[in-house]
Nucleic acid binder design. Structure first.
Length: 272
DNA sequence: CGGGGCTCCTGTGCGC
DNA sequence: TGCGCACAGGAGCCCC
């Protein structure tokens, strides 16, 4: 569900309310979402731990904690499709809940339970993190490297944008929107993009992610911010979820196809 | 390397 | 109303 802008919104929301609080109680109501270590160790490590810092890498949230015996550990949370991390009152639907020192709760909700929570010593050594591509909004994401990699790849551009080893944090919504803004058909082969198109796509990836962050993310369906509120970027979608509706630029009907098993929206007239 | 299919789950909406 | 199927912001795995 949540992509980079949504996870970033949750991060900044939670930074204002959970930093320097102690976790006084941990309840795991759905054991399958806790992947590492086993439940009792997970709970023991977090109980009476101090929340020090929140980090985002791609779609992964990393909460830096100091345990009651002064060790540094990291709680990593991947929200997958329907995960939510909401601060406030205890939610009856929570899969995992953390009671905080001020009496409020941090609830991990997840309808489909595909999300993953881990408590680890070194989050950068997790294989998902080690294999992750560059952060698209950081200076490590460079046009010449982007162009070089695209030139070598024969995969279709849209599934490639979703590949977290290639770039971190882009999901189905922002891949579709960035390609629309760049006037590129989602099924074009990466190596077929012309230099101007590569440049445009590079710029639009950054632009659409930044705009979505300003709008506090997209609540197409389940996404909620750190306070349980919806994001506003869905109002600005050009193509995502707009099958059969008129293109906002040329009035042509937006089409939907499947690419790599994922719904893919585009305008057949604006995109080439 | 690329892509298809399947899997982890739960819920909603649509067509018949 | 009821049932079955398609589909959903993700991503890993196996196989060809």
């Amino acid at each position: 569900m949540p992509e980079l802008p949504e996870v970033e919104t949750i991060k900044t929301d939670l930074e204002k309310v959970i930093l320097n609080q102690t976790i006084t109680k941990v309840d795991v109501l759905r054991a399958s979402v806790v992947k590492q270590p086993e439940i009792n160790k997970f709970k023991a490590g977090l109980t009476n731990a101090l929340i020090k810092q929140i980090i985002r890498r791609g779609k992964l949230l990393v909460i830096d904690i100091q345990t009651k015996d002064k060790k540094t550990l990291y709680l990593t949370i991947h929200l997958r499709m329907t995960g939510q991390l909401v601060y406030g009152a205890l939610d009856k639907k929570a899969r995992v809940s953390f009671k905080l020192s001020n009496g409020d709760y941090l609830c991990y909700n997840d309808q489909r339970t595909l999300g993953e929570l881990r408590l680890v010593k070194d989050w950068k050594q997790l294989s998902v993190v080690a294999k992750m591509g560059p952060e698209p909004l950081s200076s490590e994401f460079k046009l010449n490297l982007f162009a070089k990699i695209l030139a070598k790849r024969s995969a279709k551009i849209k599934p490639l944008l979703l590949d977290q080893h290639f770039i971190a944090g882009i999901g189905n919504i922002y891949a579709a929107e960035a390609l629309f803004l760049s006037k590129i058909m989602p099924d074009r082969l990466a190596c077929s993009l012309k230099p101007d198109e590569v440049k445009l796509l590079f710029k639009n990836i950054k632009q659409v992610l930044n705009k979505a962050i300003k709008c506090r993310g997209s609540s197409f369906s389940d996404y909620r911010d750190g306070h349980g509120q919806k994001g506003n970027f869905s109002q600005h979608f050009y193509v995502y979820g707009r099958k059969a509706q008129p293109c906002l630029v040329c009035k042509n009907k937006i089409q939907r196809i499947a690419l790599g098993g994922r719904g893919t929206f585009f305008c057949g007239k604006c995109q080439v």
